[in-house]
Amino acid sequence: MLDLILSIYKIPVINILVKIIVIMVPLLLTVAYFTYAERKVIGYMQVRIGPNRVGPRGWLQPIADAMKLMFKEIIFPSDANKVLFTIAPTLAIATALAAWAVVPFGSELVLADINVALLYILAMTSIGVYGIILAGWSSNSKYAIMSTLRTAAQVVSYEIAMGFALVGVVMAARSLNIGDIVEGQSSSIWGWYMWPLLPLFVIYFISGVAETNRAPFDVAEGESEIVAGFHVEYSGILFAIFFLAEYANMILISIMAALMFMGGWLSPFEGVSALGLGDSFLAGSSIIWLLAKTAIFMFLFLWFRATFPRYRYDQIMRLGWKVFIPITIVWIYVVGLMYYLELAPWFIKG
């Protein structure tokens, strides 16, 4: 029996499908409970309790929400372009999930170990914006189209800052492969790229918040001005898919920040013998560290939302073009200088 299962598993297509499921199912569960965590965390930050009715302590709330959205009617606005109206959320979720193909979870745990992984993720997130643009345009609603115009300008602006921040990482690691980038940070906690690339790290994460249209950059939704932005006309499962894509993207930005700047699966206690950890799991690199680091960034997303008021549109544009892009360009020059000086432990010529 086991032999049969193993032989089936070795068929390439089945093998890849199994791997995809192994990544997808925990991801979607994380998305579900991320929404729950968001409501709870923001609730406590605002001295409320948050959802606590469905299941013990509200644990079943995300499942109840998903069921509700699944069984609700999908309403097509009058004169809306039905084909594009349904393609839009599909495009949003497809790109949000496709980007996970190249995300490594350990030195061997990766679905597609490609050379240009970093560029692939950038490409996928940049196609993701078409989901929003299509949704806004095909809805035949003025609030949706306004949101679309805002998003188009915002995402394109912040993509530049984000790309430049990644150029710094690529320069430091001398590779576009994410596994190589993580390996380049090994030695100790001081080997992580967040120290020499601190401005790029901050800019990367803030641009990531802007790319995913989360507070305080959520002018695309802006419920106090344009109702709910691009998904104002969406209902039922189509709305749920947009929601899913947004949260999958947030987790992607978080895990990428952990991988590129905080040493991914490397342990923070690596190379520290004074603590006497020896060979225990705390000192070794494992997926637990990666997930713990990712969780920090995921929490930051929620914290930001509970803390900051929404930026005004011109302030967003100013921050992207006049603050972030100049800083990144200057810091790329600084990275070059650090390379020239062979600053240890990051820029040693191998």
Binding site: I114, V116, L122, A123, I133, A152, V156
Partner: peptide, 26 residues
């Protein structure tokens, strides 16, 4: 030519056409 392919997607699909649509929609 994976580098060129992905750069094509990032530059033309991800940036140029978004701005193009931005104008065309208005």
């Amino acid at each position: 030519a994976e580098f060129l392919a992905i750069i094509l997607v990032i530059v033309y699909v991800g940036a140029v056409m978004v701005l193009f649509l931005f104008v065309v929609m208005m």
